[in-house]
Simulated scan of single mutants.
Amino acid sequence: MKETKQADGIVCMLTERIDKELLENTHHLKIIANMAVGYDNIDIEVAKKHNIIVTNTPDVLTETTADLTFSLLMATARRMTEASDYIREDKWGHWSPFLLAGTDIHHKKLGIVGMGRIGEAVAKRAKGFGMSILYNNRTRKYEKEKELNAVYTEFDNLLSEADFIISLVPLTNRTKHLFNKQAFQKMKKSAIFINVSRGGTMDEKALVNALKSQEITAAGLDVFEDEPIPSDHPLVRLDNAICLPHIGSASIETRKAMLHLCMENVVSFFDGNGPKTPVFE
């Protein structure tokens, strides 16, 4: 807080809260460069009120985050972490037909909630597995449906039809706890839920109950409501949940590109050329 009072610009990460108190106690602040696509860590309305520019890092992390999303889907479906732990714990005594048997991915039905850049990139990967793709988005994307062989459907229908449901929506008042008790109840018992957006889009208690009661089969999570989570978190303790420490864009190449874009935004703004990737005009 002390340093920001005199700052002309701030480069921040999604773990840092840029709230009303901070924004109203700065004297020279003109730009905030957020090292993330999402910007729910920043009070956008207060920033607008004080004419403070906010930028993010779209595009540069799309493919890397899509890689992680599909990797998490695969690892969850095929129980990879369980299988790795099985050997580490010296439990592998013999081969058997259904030892750690998971579920197929190919030719299954994928439901993407939030068909933005990352959603589209995930859909491209799913095509290679012969998956059929359902999607729900705030606005329908007619031009992408033919390219991706994707079918637009209502949220409730996606929940009940898809074998894999991926959350890729930003965290807003509308999407907070979008995946709640009722949502999990509408999913197939064989469904696998993947969240690589924001932890607040899911009700963690409802998800724990759905997994414990086998209302759904499994979950793969890269995000949580309160981060970091402790090792005794209820989701970490479940065999049918894979939990990752928010590493969606965590490749060396992409993290460097994100930081570079943050600095480009700041330099371009102070050079008088305007920010490269503002989140609002």
Rank of each mutant, 00 (worst) to 15 (best):
K2M: 12
C12H: 02
K20R: 14
N25A: 08
H27I: 08
I32G: 13
A33D: 06
G38W: 13
Y39M: 01
I42S: 11
I44T: 11
V46R: 12
H50N: 15
I53A: 11
T57I: 13
V60P: 02
V60T: 06
L61S: 03
T62L: 08
T64A: 15
D67N: 14
A77T: 08
M80N: 07
A83C: 10
Y86F: 15
R88S: 09
H94P: 03
H94V: 10
W95Q: 08
L99M: 14
L100M: 15
T103W: 09
I105P: 00
H107N: 15
L110Q: 03
L110A: 03
G114N: 04
G114Y: 01
M115C: 09
R117P: 01
I118R: 07
G119P: 04
V122F: 13
R125P: 12
K127V: 10
S132C: 06
I133G: 02
L134P: 06
Y135L: 07
N137T: 03
N137W: 05
E143Q: 14
E143H: 15
K144F: 11
A150L: 09
V151D: 13
E154C: 08
F155Q: 04
D156P: 07
D156N: 14
N157S: 14
N157A: 09
L159P: 00
S160R: 13
I166T: 00
L168H: 03
L171V: 00
R174F: 00
K181H: 15
K181L: 07
K188L: 06
S190P: 01
R198W: 06
T201G: 00
D203M: 07
L211K: 02
T217Y: 11
I229D: 15
S231Y: 14
S231W: 11
D232P: 04
D239Q: 12
I242T: 05
H246L: 12
G248N: 00
S249T: 14
A250G: 02
M258Q: 04
H260C: 09
E264P: 04
E264S: 12
N265F: 08
N265H: 09
S268D: 10
F270T: 01
P275M: 07
K276G: 07
P278K: 07
